[in-house]
Design a protein around this nucleic acid. Structure first.
Lengths: 140, 140
DNA sequence: CTTGATTTTGCAACACTGTTGCATCACATT
DNA sequence: AATGTGATGCAACAGTGTTGCAAAATCAAG
């Protein structure tokens, strides 16, 4: 079936991203995973593809609101696909969960980041809310 | 006045930390700042003290609930003193604010991290909530 | 006080992540 | 086919965190 080859290209085109081979591979890799991924994870799966090429593809995706960065405190930035109509505004942000055991990061899309009453003159632009603990899989 | 020399030692002793020269210097540096500091910042102020020595002092402080780590997405972990009776439990956690302009990180101690309704079987242990934007000083 | 054990510190080195510069290559347009 | 634009691969680098080991300082026991 070729739907797996056609879909990613459509996604890229919908975001005005030229669907080059590397970008397609990176996107397919992200689509194949349910968790947020490190650059290194993608590198391992796409064996033979340069780290920098993946890096630039991801940066391109970010700029075009296709993926978002998550800083889960593990030391490495993780990346996950945005939801369809995400424009990476404040309202689009959601909470993430980092499991200390399997070290995987979950997008809790149903949990919007709560707005906070900041001190006067402070302006919010974005936020990073990561809850850490043990995920359902590791909690046996 | 010698209160500045006696106080830090008391703080360390109260947390069962042996007040060695390096530890005192690191603690004094943290006390002298209103914002969270990077290892590198402390290193710069304590000119001549080894990075690793500061690192180990900080790690010791962390273990004894004297400082907490903040991951503000700047790439470098920042450290700030805990409040007096902090035991680094969930209830002790507060929101942080990272200013994109001056790159300083503020402890918003009055803002407790809100609890979230997680998916079933997920266990919370800690959290990192950083709001990013422009601080009052830079917002002119 | 001397000896020995333990802890702390300084130094060197390393791993990992992210990033940039540059040359080459592919591709699209004329 | 010629040309220009962008994508890719390669090499190198910087920042951060971390560990191993040896020297120094501290502490405890005799």
């Amino acid at each position: 079936m070729n739907s797996q080859k056609i879909e990613p290209a459509k996604i890229l085109l919908a975001k005005n991203i030229k669907p080059t081979p590397i970008r397609l591979k990176v996107l397919e890799t992200l689509l194949s995973q349910t968790h947020a991924m490190r650059l290194y994870d993608i590198e391992n799966i796409l064996d033979g593809v340069e780290r920098t090429s993946i890096f630039r593809a991801i940066k391109n995706f970010e700029k075009n609101n296709l993926v978002h960065e998550i800083d889960d405190g593990s030391g490495a930035t993780k990346f996950a696909l945005c939801e369809d109509r995400c424009e990476c505004n404040l309202e689009d942000l959601h909470v993430h969960f980092f499991c200390k055991i399997c070290e995987q990061t979950f997008c809790l899309q149903q949990l919007q980041i709560p707005s906070m009453e900041l001190p006067p003159e402070f302006v919010v632009e974005s936020a990073n809310f990561v809850i850490k603990g043990i995920c359902a899989n590791c909690n046996t």
